[in-house]
Design a protein around this nucleic acid. Structure first.
Lengths: 188, 188, 188, 188
DNA sequence: GATGAATGAGGCTTCATTCAT
DNA sequence: GATGAATGAAGCCTCATTCAT
């Protein structure tokens, strides 16, 4: 029985990629990523067929982690607004806690490297979040707007809020609340 | 390096860069940009010292064009809401009319190629837009939030609105209005 | 390295190599050959010390098979011309029946991978064929030419005939005869 | 005006390729070819788009040179046989004089790197030679065999003759004559 | 022995920038 | 100044071979 392929190394590479890309951008050489992960350059390609493949898997990984973080510990029975606020807190908190991950995710999202398939898979991960938003929208002022539009607005406001929280950390909590209030005003 | 003679070629290169980068991303080779502009590859470097320089100038060019487009034909005396709406229309309309420019501007904004100086200069171009927003905020619900935050929210909502307008062109006008209403609700 | 157990796998690898090399050339990766043979990549090297070794063994295998095919069912007592024609038929028929084997043998022959030792062993396999030719030459027009030369001519004419038979399969039989007649005219 | 592309370097690269490939085979690294030509590795690709392109051009170059050599100084009015013999002498002499070129041409011919287009162009270069052969065939014993077949036979006999001449240089002239006589016997 | 992951040297090719003309 | 060939440092990826299991 040969050495089994270690998931540990896969993770190490993904984490290294996050760190390196945050610093050097998407054009960061694969050899640098491998080195950062403490792995020889050629081995990177036993875990990811191409650099593009690595980038796509990283995109999915980060997107998934973000969605999971946002929905963590969500109270089963509570007011929509309260539940939504909890998600909003989780979400922005994740972004502020892992600025590199957020930044890399942003870079990946605008790059031409992510396939339509990856994007679709990424969207699916946000499904639960979307449902939450949909319930809010349904009874509120934006009930006539398409769900996709509301989601996009919500997402972009989250981004702006995250930026501001990161930029002014001491008042992060306040900015989080303000962003949410603005969103809620817009939606309901 | 002395000032190059023909500003015409400079413009041609910038426009070519927009087209090429929209298609191929920021890693598009300079030789391709030069060819698209109908200019010999070596000559690109008489107009821009380095590729990074080209990218920074392109960033400013696009940012400036966008700001100018947004403020064009603004009625001097009118209700704040009306004036703001006019800007909103101009702005989103520009983005939908020149999707490549918007896309490239987005790519440049997240890339590590743009210097702090360029970013600062870019922000200055948005000054008038910012003032408009400030006046709205001052009397409204977000009066206590920092200007920067409100601007960021506004900007991100504009982005989301543009996305949706581009994606569903037949109803672009409607989405434009909806986005604005959401913004106004949030702000005032 | 001790003799490997299963000769079956050795054969499978050699056959797979023939198929793969016919398609992809001598630079075909060993992993592809192993996969084609349904054998794990690392195991290839329990059967062949190196890729070069595999290539040399394949060369001998094919050469041997070709010689055996050519001499198969040779009538013990018959006119030289008739015996020779029978060999000629066998030989060209083998080449046309197994174009991949012939092609790979040709590639191996011109490559620098085959050792002098393998070449010598390969020639030895053609001994009986050579004797046949020698007897023809001895009484004919080329009696003064060195045996090696006559063999070379014979071989090259066989190659040309095979090419033409493969290329124009419906008339293969005719071309076979024509090639032989030309050869006989030359030799006798 | 920039430095014009030097045909000298193109030639140098082709010649270097011949030398290197003769020694190391078709898998010889491009950097080695460039170095042998006294040219930096990157510059090779201003003269040849890819390694495959280099190989195809080399094939054509060698084929053309061979054809030109074969037909050089051909007496306008003379007996067919005499004219043909002259070509035969030229041809085999070229091969013996430039064994590397011949060897490389052989390697290229069997490799999968040469495109159908290159092969077609290569054949066209042999047109005059083919005509000569055709005239001989038309009146002789092989008048019923297809031209292509006769050419193939002729070519393969030439190869065998060249081999023998190279191998036994002191008697090269004799072998040349013998090969020709055999050919003539076969054809006429 | 059998397996297939691991390795790292090396191959082809790209490209920003320089510079001869 | 204008041009486009020249340069050579990297970059991505391949692959024969080894070796842990």
């Amino acid at each position: 029985m040969p050495r089994p392929r270690s998931d540990e190394k896969r993770i190490a590479l993904l984490e290294a990629a996050t760190r390196i890309i945050a610093t050097q951008g998407l054009s960061a050489p694969t050899v640098g990523i491998a080195k950062e992960a403490g792995i020889p350059n050629g081995s990177l390609f036993t875990y990811f067929e191409t650099k593009t493949d690595l980038l796509n898997q990283l995109y999915l990984e980060l997107k998934g982690e973000m969605a999971a973080a946002a929905l963590k510990g969500l109270p089963a029975r509570a007011e929509p607004r309260e539940r939504f606020f909890r998600v909003w807190q989780n979400w922005t908190s994740w972004a502020v806690t892992f600025p590199e991950k957020r930044q890399v995710l942003a870079q990946l999202s605008v790059s031409g490297e992510i396939t339509a398939q990856s994007r679709a898979a990424g969207h699916k991960m946000m499904t639960d979040l979307a449902e939450l938003a949909d319930r809010s929208r349904a009874t509120g002022l934006m009930r006539k707007a398409p769900l996709g539009f509301v989601l996009a607005l919500m997402n972009s406001m989250a981004e702006a809020t995250m930026d501001y929280m990161a930029q002014d950390a001491p008042n992060a909590k306040k900015h989080c609340k303000e962003g949410f209030d603005a969103l809620w005003r817009m939606v309901e």
